[in-house]
């Protein structure tokens, strides 16, 4: 039975100032959630499946150049554009603020992916191939999807459920920080924080109100549950002034 708590709203804060772009979160997510292997062909054809991706942007010109990174999972929007377009309710919003994908309902229309401005939904165009030996390391807590199914970041719902079940067995409330997502576990610099946004005392809730917090594409009014903290540039103003002077 599902142990849901309607008072919760699971959310994530990603501090881009701490993110080093190492891709540790990407591989950790893939292993935890049985995301299919991405062979060379998939890279060449632009069909890489990655529930969590790290985008790299260049800033400036040599020698004052810098790579900037931003990790992007499903934003678990409160006003998710993917939800109302699904004809079979395979994607919907649950009572804990998560955007859920129900694999055995999905009929593969891909309307949801068309509607997602963050491009975080991935369609299984092919049957995933797992060599016999590698099936041993698949996570039994997560369904292995088949061809024709849409998939995306679930906020590691299997970990949330496992944690909630354990807390219930022990007759106690879930503690802040008790449930961690795979990407969060793999982040050495602690750039990712996960927790209940409705709990004013939770770390994620406090961080979400930080002065540096913002959401992606606010113009679409999607109200994401993934909140970013802006990257800090020492001497940002100075360098802008310098640039302005050099234009003179």
């Amino acid at each position: 039975m599902v142990i849901e708590n309607k008072d919760r709203s699971w959310g994530m804060v990603i501090d881009t100032d701490k993110c080093t772009g190492c891709n540790g979160c990407v591989i950790a997510c893939q292993v935890e959630n049985n995301v299919p292997l991405n062979d060379q062909n998939k890279f060449e054809r632009g069909r890489v499946m990655s529930w969590m991706r790290v985008e790299r942007y260049w800033e400036g010109e040599f020698p004052d150049v810098k790579a900037r990174f931003i990790p992007i999972p499903c934003q678990h929007c409160a006003n998710a554009p993917c939800e109302p377009v699904c004809p079979v309710y395979a994607t919907y919003h649950n009572n804990e603020g998560m955007n859920i994908q129900v694999y055995n309902r999905c009929v593969g229309t891909r309307y949801c992916a068309n509607g997602c401005p963050y491009i975080v939904r991935f369609f299984n165009y092919w049957e995933p191939i797992w060599p016999e030996e590698m099936r041993n390391h698949l996570n039994p807590d997560v369904t292995v999807r088949s061809r024709g199914i849409m998939e995306k970041c679930s906020f590691c719902i299997q970990r949330v459920r496992r944690g909630a079940r354990k807390a219930k067995e022990e007759n106690r409330e879930l503690k802040d920080g008790e449930i961690t997502t795979a990407c969060q576990d793999a982040c050495s610099t602690q750039a990712i924080t996960f927790g209940d946004l409705n709990d004013p005392q939770s770390k994620v809730s406090k961080l979400s109100k930080d002065d540096r917090s913002y959401t992606l594409m606010p113009q679409f009014n999607t109200d994401p549950n993934v909140i970013y903290l802006a990257s800090i540039k020492v001497n940002k103003e100075e360098s802008q002034e310098e640039k302005a002077q050099s234009h003179d």
């Binding site: 900037r68 540096r212 113009q219």
Partner: peptide
């Protein structure tokens, strides 16, 4: 693989100066 998109039109990643808010 995924078309790059801006945080805001023209802004890939939001950068702040120390003390500046988002």
């Amino acid at each position: 693989t995924v078309e790059a998109f801006p945080v805001e039109p023209g802004i890939p990643i939001l950068i702040v100066a120390p003390g500046e808010t988002a």
